[in-house]
Nucleic acid binder design. Structure first.
Lengths: 134, 134
DNA sequence: CGGCTTATCGAGAACGGTTGTCAAAACCGT
DNA sequence: ACGGTTTTGACAACCGTTCTCGATAAGCCG
């Protein structure tokens, strides 16, 4: 049976707080900073669990797994700021259809797709421009 | 200055031979099998180099980096068989445009996107079906 | 409420892929 | 062929993640 522990809730809350993609380690650090005594392994376990149950999205960037709280059950993609991690959920019916059609055309079945856009959000763009051209 | 070594050529050849996405370790193993004395670190370095120069594509799956020889200079995406690693290069202007437009709409700049489709190729689909319903 | 069962936790060790270090070897313009 | 510089190979170090295992506590049941 699945149990409810304060650790699980703490991770859920911290993830919701983050508002963008964060690594397990970063989440652990911020929890510790907030006075929690939660263990790193627990954060990893909980995040994996949340991702399995569809309460979190995950993606790999530069060799580490990032997680983000997400609206459960809905299929969507992300627009992610490379610098600050801010994330926008986006829907993309045209892409969904394109993916399905392309897979079928080549005889592929059980197709899933990865569609993410990385860039600099408006704020970070401004900051970067100011820094490079003072 | 950049130099040409037999190791570099060996990696290039092995990568072309593979015909799909392979891990650095797998490539190293197959090179060794073929009698080469190339070191693992060299395979890693060479693959990173090839990817930088646009001679290879790379993606992350289950915590490891996979590489594949690709037609240099062209921007394209992949349709990848989860089981056997076979890969088809696909072009997707509609998706390119969609990505550019979506990023711009949200004020994002310097946008890059990741678009890959994973599934089972025709051959593996047949094999899987046969196995599950004998 | 007070046991009892068993999932979950914490601490640290283990693991696997990747990258760094540095002396020795190879490359290439001269 | 020579000499400066890059690249290699062997191995250690790294880093994120997972495993192990005794301790802890959640939830059920009387």
């Amino acid at each position: 049976m699945k149990r409810n522990t304060w650790q699980r809730e703490a991770v859920r809350a911290a993830l919701a707080d983050a508002g963008g993609f964060v690594s397990a380690q970063a989440l652990h650090a911020s929890l510790r900073e907030g006075g929690s005594t939660i263990a790193l392994a627990t954060v990893y376990r909980t995040l994996t669990g949340l991702a399995d149950e569809g309460e979190a999205d995950s993606l790999q960037q530069e060799g580490e797994l990032l997680y983000r709280a997400c609206t459960p059950g809905s299929h969507h993609h992300h627009l992610i700021c490379r610098r600050c991690g801010t994330t926008v959920e986006i829907e993309a019916q045209p892409v969904e259809e394109w993916a399905r059609r392309t897979a079928a055309e080549h005889g592929f079945t059980r197709a899933e797709h990865v569609v993410d856009i990385f860039g600099l959000c408006a704020r970070c763009t401004e900051l970067a421009d100011r820094a490079s051209r003072p």
